[in-house]
Design a protein around this nucleic acid. Structure first.
Lengths: 187, 187
DNA sequence: CCAATAGTGGGACTAACGTTCAGGTATCTT
DNA sequence: AAGATACCTGAACGTTAGTCCCACTATTGG
């Protein structure tokens, strides 16, 4: 049978994704610098050689992990837009502000990981399509008649996030809302 | 004499700054990941032990380098504002757009280094004052009656830069000017 | 049923790493 | 002049890294 769920290949791919997830956890905790075959293997609870079997080099592991991370981010943005739409016109700012506050609060580690992806993509062209994915999702979903205003909006989101990461106490939802609102409809 | 320029201490501090400059070059070329005592020593043309003599640990070297980098960035921003002012009201956008285009073009490596500083500051609170320095300079020099608009401006600059770093062909000055202009005087 | 194959895991090898140390030299202080 | 001081550096230590090897197991396709 080809569709056997517990076969060799299926278990292999399962472990592969487990390794990727463990890598993401390591990046969230210690940054890309903390990623080694051994730390990842320990985090995933597998022998060291398992990571080298599924990913030829450490670089492959990093690239695979960050592409995965970018995919998650893009789908999250997708659902955010969807939610903002269903909440009616003009309520988009609240949804976005809430998401930003989460990114800087409970999901801070994840946000840092995403910006390490950005920086790695700056050096590795192969990662750029993945890093740009959430930008593409936004661009394709949101109607933008004013090209310049939309570009400011995209840049503003990134700036708010990265500056929030180096704040001693990151801004909360209520602090972000007027800024996001301004970004969405400047007068 | 205390003012001897060729004394023991003076040469020591000179080498110290040479090591810091070499470290910055390594970061620009290979990123923070490429910084080791040996690569830095080779880049500076000094023996390996020299880097450990002047900086107790690798971390100290990194922190010293990034603080130095941040200082340069802040003074550059200072002079940019000064220039924009002398060019008369309303010409600020051109000056800023030119600076951004340079940061994404000839000085791309330096810009990447600066964002590695950001990300490191997100994990090391001791680096945050240094990372925020150029923001503080802007805040103190530019009159801003509208708090929200100014915040959008700061975030926009960062967003434009970091998104420019993952573009396959970074935007040029003429492409950036309308966006910067929009950031400065939204209607 | 059986050869081929994908996955597993313990061990080990080499290279590179951060860091230490001890001996040496030039400079400063008194 | 002479001891103290700051700087310099070759050699080496112990550790950890990436990666490879090989014997083993369980699944697969014919």
């Amino acid at each position: 049978m080809k569709r056997q769920v517990d076969g060799r290949k299926a278990r292999g791919e399962k472990r592969r994704t487990e390794i990727i997830e463990a890598t993401l956890r390591v990046i969230e905790r210690d940054g890309v610098a903390g990623v080694t075959h051994r730390t990842v293997a320990a985090e995933a609870g597998v022998p060291t050689t398992s990571t080298t079997y599924h990913f030829a080099t450490l670089d492959d592991l990093l690239v695979a992990t960050l592409i995965d991370c970018a995919r998650d981010m893009a789908t999250e943005v997708y659902w955010m837009i969807d939610r903002a739409r269903s909440h009616g016109r003009g309520r988009g700012a609240e949804e976005i502000a809430k998401l930003l506050a989460e990114a800087l609060g409970p999901k801070r580690g994840r946000t840092m990981a995403e910006y390490e992806l950005y920086l790695l993509a700056a050096r590795k062209p192969e990662l750029r399509p993945a890093a740009r994915r959430w930008l593409d999702v936004l661009t394709s979903m949101v109607r933008h008649d004013d090209e310049v205003a939309f570009r400011v909006f995209l840049a503003g989101i990134d700036g708010l996030l990265i500056q929030g990461l180096i704040d001693d106490e990151p801004p909360g939802e209520e602090e972000l809302r007027p800024v996001v609102d301004y970004l969405l409809n400047p007068r």
